[in-house]
Design a protein around this nucleic acid. Structure first.
Lengths: 241, 241
DNA sequence: TAGTGGTCTAGACCACCCG
DNA sequence: GGGTGGTCTAGACCACTAG
């Protein structure tokens, strides 16, 4: 049975996600019906339905009217779901490696015009800039550069832990929640400096991701630019209707 | 007021999407409250909520508890939502061009081992293969290759209209609905043959998308491989929580 | 025909933001 | 305090699929 410190739907979702992850509901099999789950958790059918709808929208479940709800075996193998286009840690994990974040450079400097435009601040305003390397089993696979408006932070930037992922970093030091992101994907040649950090040849072909994170107040929080080694990591996206 | 030939929620969604598209609810502004919308459409608040939740999940709306629901101006400018990773027509449209589909080659041939594996058929089984070029204002921007198990079609392949997009083609000639897709994104050099079709230099850097379409019965429907000119078209993805 | 998911309602209470 | 979105319930009826 569930108690009420957190929303019931959230608790149900966590339980179901765990069962999927741990194979309690095995790949391709049918899971219990809505009524059965509602009875088991002691919640209404509507509450169960919102959870199942969400998991189905993410492709984890396949629902067939008049039949039942099934575990989507294919998507369990896929490695990047909705969240992961910018969440490099889980992306690396989902590819079967152990992720590490390594800070390679940080500085405070004025914003370029382009950065100021994207972040909705004045050109020349202070920026916190950080370069980080993501390792998959100790092998460099992603180089990520992020810039934040300096005014966002409530602590001196020296205190910022560069090994946190973006969402937690923003939570902890800026007290902001990410509401949505916009990512642009490009294919480019690898710049020389980035190549040396990634231990790759310059001018190799790489995926380049440019991401802007926004708060629910439509405020730009950070600008990210990363180079992505798509030979080691597969960028695989699932979409469901 | 609404009638009941189609689900109420679907009708409400269409109306709201149109209002967003046409600027009835202008960018950044607050839209009517849930209760007001429910009253206007003559449906329950729950029905309105499912629609608003969906639009918010797609990033079109921003919801703030205790305040209201707002039009996300930034996402209106973005060009590819999660739906459009494979829907090249709307992707081209959203970039501000007029799309055209031009068939460049079609054939029937046996499946390679790799294709057979991805489509869950026997190697050597018959495939319908089609190469198509997507034009943005008459300029070639995407080259797409699709292969379908021949057994899927209920008509001779000569009758297949090569200018339809994948979902409609599958609906019309194979009576199948797409339930989900898995897309892999790569950065590659452009092969020579593809370069000539796209009027580009060979060995140029391009985005390459590999997509598999599945039915809700987990049956692979088609395999797509496309080259994407990311200089003219921006591949921009929105993600919301 | 029994059971499943799909749709919808009416109503309740809560958490939060604003003036 | 009044209005907003957030959560949840109980119950109804429908559409569909399976055996």
């Amino acid at each position: 049975m569930l108690v009420q410190p957190k929303p019931l739907a959230e608790q149900v979702e966590q339980v179901l996600r765990r069962r999927l992850r741990e194979g309690v509901y095995s790949a391709g099999s049918r899971i219990p019906s809505e009524s059965e789950l509602a009875a088991e958790f002691g919640v209404s059918r509507a509450t169960v339905r919102t959870v199942l709808a969400k998991l189905a929208a993410h492709g984890l479940l396949l629902r067939r009217q008049g039949d039942g709800t099934y575990v989507n075996a294919r998507v369990q193998q896929a490695n990047a779901h909705w969240g992961s286009l910018w969440d490099f840690n889980s992306l690396i994990e989902n590819n079967g490696y152990t992720p590490t974040i390594q800070e390679v450079a940080r500085e405070v400097r004025p914003a370029t015009e382009e950065e100021a435009l994207a972040l909705a601040i004045a050109p020349g305003e202070g920026l916190f800039s950080i370069h980080r390397l993501f390792l998959a089993d100790a092998q460099p696979v992603i180089l990520a550069h992020n810039v934040f408006p300096l005014s966002l932070f409530r602590v001196p930037v020296e205190q910022i832990d560069g090994s946190l992922h973006i969402r937690r970093l923003l939570q902890r030091y800026a007290a902001r929640e990410v509401a949505f992101t916009i990512t642009t994907v490009h294919a480019t040649h690898l710049p020389e400096k980035a190549a040396s950090w990634l231990c790759r040849q310059p001018e190799e072909v790489m995926l380049s991701l440019q991401v802007v994170f926004y708060s629910k107040d439509d405020e730009p929080l950070t600008l990210g630019h990363s180079f992505f080694d798509d030979r080691l990591l597969r960028l695989r996206l699932v979409q469901a209707w």
